[in-house]
């Protein structure tokens, strides 16, 4: 497996760090190499927050992600900010409840999931971030869903075990209620 770089971006409070944490834990469970980073600076309340995860079978060099293979985008300002950075041919996973489903670029694959709406229907909008993980795993098979569920349980069990069932539900709902839109084939040149 080649190295995969993931960016998770949203508003402060949408749980981007938690997404990074769960993905990282799942990597450890699968004995993959992983480096996680969070945006660390003079961040502004209500501004965009982001985290990154690099997973690889091989030794990881730079812990930085400048051009992610995949980006989980939780809100509109993050889409505006990070869409240009995604690798050509890469993947944008959109929380369409807050981003809409339009990309400016034509060279990206897309996963649409109305994460905030789904989370709202489950009874807690805070789990929208977890919904996006379910969608990512379903369509990319980057990690097994079992490892992600385990990583999630490990994380929440230490904080508040009562949260685990709802989050597992959110994960599964994300997997079921998301849609993969492949890269539009390049316009064929007439011979």
């Amino acid at each position: 497996m080649k190295e995969t770089k993931i960016l998770i971006a949203g508003a402060g409070g949408q749980g981007v760090v938690v997404v990074g944490n769960i993905l990282s834990r799942a990597c450890v469970i699968e004995r993959k190499n992983v480096v996680g980073m969070v945006a660390y600076g003079a961040e502004m309340r209500g501004g965009t927050a982001y985290a990154t995860v690099i997973l690889s079978e091989e030794e990881i060099g730079s812990p930085f992600v400048e051009h992610p293979d995949m980006a989980i985008i939780l809100n509109r300002p993050s889409l505006d900010k990070f869409e240009p950075d995604i690798l050509p041919g890469g993947m944008a996973l959109l929380n369409t409840s807050l981003t809409g489903s339009m990309l400016k670029r034509g060279d990206l694959q897309r996963i649409d999931v109305a994460a905030t709406q789904i989370a709202h229907d489950l009874g807690n909008v805070k789990v929208a971030n977890i919904v996006t993980i379910g969608a990512l795993i379903e369509h990319t098979k980057l990690l097994s869903m079992a490892s992600v569920e385990q990583g999630l349980s490990d994380l929440f069990s230490s904080k508040n075990p009562k949260l685990v069932p709802l989050n597992i539900k959110a994960l599964r709902a994300g997997a079921e209620q998301s849609r993969y839109i492949s890269l539009r084939p390049a316009v064929s040149t007439r011979s």
Binding site: G20, S24, V35, G36, M37, F64
Partner: peptide, 10 residues
């Protein structure tokens, strides 16, 4: 350095 202080690894 700040990178080592900020990153997460197993």
């Amino acid at each position: 350095d700040g990178i080592l202080g900020q990153m997460a690894e197993p």
